[in-house]
Simulated assay, not measured.
Amino acid sequence: MSAILAIEDVTVRFGGLTAVNKFSMAVQKGAIHALIGPNGAGKSTVFNCISRIYQPSEGRITLNGEDISKLKSHSMAGRGVARSFQNLELFNELTVLENVMLGAYSRCDTTFLQRLTPRPKQTLEQAEEILESTGLKNYRNTKASGLDFGHQKLLEVARALAISPQLLLLDEPAAGLRSREIERLDELLTSLNKTKGITILLVEHVMQLVMSISDRISVLSFGEKIAEGTPTEVKNHPRVIEAYLGTKEAGRG
């Protein structure tokens, strides 16, 4: 497999603080890759560099061989990169269907009202298919604010899918979810990866999900990569056990 995303010696500094130090990682096309580490390790900073919210101080990032290190964030959707956020970024007064349809227009330079009306048939059909695949069909006319937290997290993923991404960036998609909801998310992400071929890079603390779905895992600690490999290799790595998982957690697999 070839790398769809390559991060090469990326360093990010905020004043005198080095948040990420010479971090490198390759995400293979068609894989599910997890980026884990303790709070403050630099995971979200890396995500913000990929999605072009932050500018690396050093190093470069390539997508399908193209250097994207200096692109604007709004240009990423047009390159097939979609992202969900750690904190929900939904339009609470719009319906579930409208939230997903709005996501489909993120490649366009239209106004907010033009994005909502009229509803092109193709966009509507695509949104309906996404709601079906994510289990949100029965909530299509419900305002986002009326959903429980678990369904709001699913809606974040559904809206990201509306641009038909080749690379899906998920920032703690399982945070705050109950056990059954995590299982449902596991099934959804596995399906998106296996049946639709979407490459997934996720930042996550819920080891149940990470160890279940990941093909490869990279581990950050204090801004530096301390380990990388398969779930089995990572959970048994001494530095990972010490820095993040802990003996009991690592043993759960």
Rank of each mutant, 00 (worst) to 15 (best):
residue 187 E to L: 12
residue 232 T to H: 12
residue 207 M to I: 07
residue 184 R to Y: 11
residue 187 E to T: 15
residue 154 L to Q: 10
residue 12 V to E: 07
residue 120 P to E: 14
residue 221 S to E: 14
residue 251 G to A: 15
residue 220 L to R: 01
residue 167 L to Q: 05
residue 204 E to T: 04
residue 192 L to V: 03
residue 178 R to G: 14
residue 185 L to C: 07
residue 221 S to I: 08
residue 136 L to I: 04
residue 69 S to T: 14
residue 138 N to T: 14
residue 18 T to N: 07
residue 135 G to Y: 07
residue 245 L to S: 01
residue 68 I to L: 06
residue 57 S to A: 10
residue 79 R to P: 01
residue 125 E to N: 15
residue 126 Q to M: 15
residue 191 S to K: 15
residue 150 G to D: 07
residue 47 F to I: 08
residue 11 T to H: 06
residue 25 M to Y: 00
residue 180 R to T: 12
residue 37 G to T: 02
residue 41 A to Y: 02
residue 224 E to K: 11
residue 89 E to V: 10
residue 41 A to R: 02
residue 157 V to D: 03
residue 99 N to C: 05
residue 7 I to W: 03
residue 140 R to T: 10
residue 201 L to V: 13
residue 191 S to H: 15
residue 23 F to L: 11
residue 80 G to K: 03
residue 251 G to R: 14
residue 32 I to Y: 04
residue 192 L to D: 05
residue 104 A to Y: 02
residue 154 L to W: 06
residue 26 A to M: 13
residue 38 P to W: 03
residue 225 K to R: 14
residue 209 L to V: 13
residue 144 A to W: 05
residue 128 E to S: 14
residue 54 Y to N: 12
residue 32 I to K: 05
residue 81 V to F: 02
residue 162 A to H: 04
residue 66 E to V: 13
residue 212 S to W: 06
residue 2 S to R: 07
residue 188 L to S: 02
residue 100 V to I: 12
residue 164 S to R: 14
residue 123 T to K: 12
residue 25 M to Q: 10
residue 123 T to D: 12
residue 186 D to Y: 12
residue 158 A to L: 02
residue 229 G to M: 11
residue 10 V to S: 00
residue 50 I to W: 06
residue 230 T to C: 08
residue 201 L to N: 04
residue 142 T to C: 11
residue 50 I to E: 05
residue 12 V to H: 01
residue 226 I to F: 00
residue 126 Q to C: 11
residue 71 L to D: 13
residue 118 P to C: 09
residue 110 T to K: 15
residue 207 M to V: 07
residue 66 E to F: 08
residue 179 S to A: 15
residue 106 S to C: 10
residue 194 K to M: 11
residue 160 A to S: 11
residue 171 D to I: 04
residue 124 L to Q: 13
residue 170 L to C: 09
residue 43 K to N: 03
residue 129 E to R: 15
residue 215 D to Q: 09
residue 39 N to H: 07
residue 243 A to P: 02
residue 78 G to C: 06
residue 33 H to E: 09
residue 207 M to S: 03
residue 245 L to H: 05
residue 220 L to P: 00
residue 248 K to C: 08
residue 137 K to Y: 13
residue 10 V to Y: 09
residue 213 I to Y: 05
residue 64 N to K: 13
residue 78 G to K: 12
residue 136 L to D: 08
residue 127 A to V: 04
residue 154 L to F: 15
residue 143 K to Y: 14
residue 87 N to M: 10
